[in-house]
């Protein structure tokens, strides 16, 4: 990916200034990944005497490499540390720091601390892709809620009646074709979420075999406990790695006693958000307050 040192003379001159390299790195990360974190100083009170000014920029790459500079010493180290921690959370947030590099969270705590250095940290990465395998009722609702959540929705089915843009106006891509070959050709990365809700467990099984070892962020497969266990056993017998199979969410979704396709889709997307943001899946209210234990 490194450009040649001396571009041919007929090529447009490449702007190698730091802002240009930063802008190019951000554009590349937003299109193809891997993720990086763009850090911008948005507040740096002079009274603090830190070597940071509003507008200073630092890129922190997923492997810890950096481009640009913000502050120095403990503060610089803290910013880099917080930036790396933001990647798995896909976070976009403003973090407040003391000159010594201690992060302060919460509006009140920040106000109490008085002058703080504030850094806008944005994880830049390709949009999360939601690949829905199966365009039936559940698949349609899954795609619809996924689109609502801002995911880039792709739907795959081998039946034209279930894989067309009239049925999925909110999808970025609708693929009508053979499950195995289309899945083999589909790019899968750490920002790809895959939901297997096809017309039958045989299709789900062959689809799962095609995607499970390729490092997706999430794979979930619909079905009863018994049936999905059989599918996993088949794949284990076929030699699919146990650690990959152990990461399959099946039966799919959070337990909210979902019944309708729309409710099932809600349970599935809730599970996906949980995986994406690192939640617990529990109600935020204390146990026994609103929900009694025997519900």
């Amino acid at each position: 990916m490194t450009p040649p040192d001396t571009p041919p003379s007929d090529m447009p001159r490449v702007d190698e200034s730091l802002p240009a390299r930063i802008a190019q790195a951000i554009l590349t990360a937003s299109r193809d990944g891997p993720p990086l974190v763009s850090c911008s100083v948005i507040a740096a009170p002079e009274a603090l005497g830190v070597a940071a000014a509003i507008g200073d920029k630092l890129l922190v790459f997923h492997d810890g490499a950096t481009l640009g500079e913000i502050a120095s010493g403990a503060l610089a180290a803290a910013i880099r540390h917080e930036a790396l921690a933001a990647i798995p959370r896909h976070a976009v947030e403003t973090a407040a720091f003391t000159p010594a590099g201690d992060r302060i969270d919460g509006r009140r705590a920040i106000e109490a601390a008085g002058d703080v250095i504030e850094v806008l940290m944005e994880v830049v990465e390709p949009a999360a892709t939601l690949l829905v395998v199966g365009g039936g009722h559940v698949g349609r609702s899954v795609g619809e809620i996924g689109a609502l959540l801002g995911m880039s929705v792709v739907v795959l089915d081998d039946r034209e009646d279930y894989a067309n843009t009239d049925r999925f106006p909110f999808a970025d891509q609708v693929i009508c074709g053979d499950f195995a070959s289309e899945l083999d050709a589909f790019p899968i990365n750490a920002n790809t979420y895959i939901v297997l809700v096809s017309r039958g467990h045989k299709v789900d099984e062959l689809s799962l075999a095609r995607v499970v070892t390729r490092g997706p962020a999430y794979v979930g497969m619909i079905g009863s406990k018994r049936r999905t266990r059989t599918v996993l056993e088949h794949l284990a017998t076929d030699g699919i790695r146990a650690d990959a199979l152990a990461r399959v969410f099946t039966p799919i979704g959070l337990d909210i006693r979902a019944e309708t396709p729309e409710e099932i889709a809600l349970a599935v997307l809730a599970e996906i958000v949980l995986v994406r943001r690192g939640g617990s899946g529990r109600p935020l209210s204390p146990p026994g307050q609103a929900l009694s234990g025997d519900i």
Binding site: D15, I22, A23, L27, S30, L120, G150
Partner: peptide, 26 residues
């Protein structure tokens, strides 16, 4: 998440030295 169009606009403004302002909800 900002659209590809926005990142492309930032990149072209910076590279071309075209004055522009980026507003980001912080």
């Amino acid at each position: 998440m900002p659209s590809d169009e926005v990142y492309a606009e930032i990149q072209s403004a910076v590279t071309a030295g075209e004055p522009a302002v980026l507003a980001t909800v912080a």
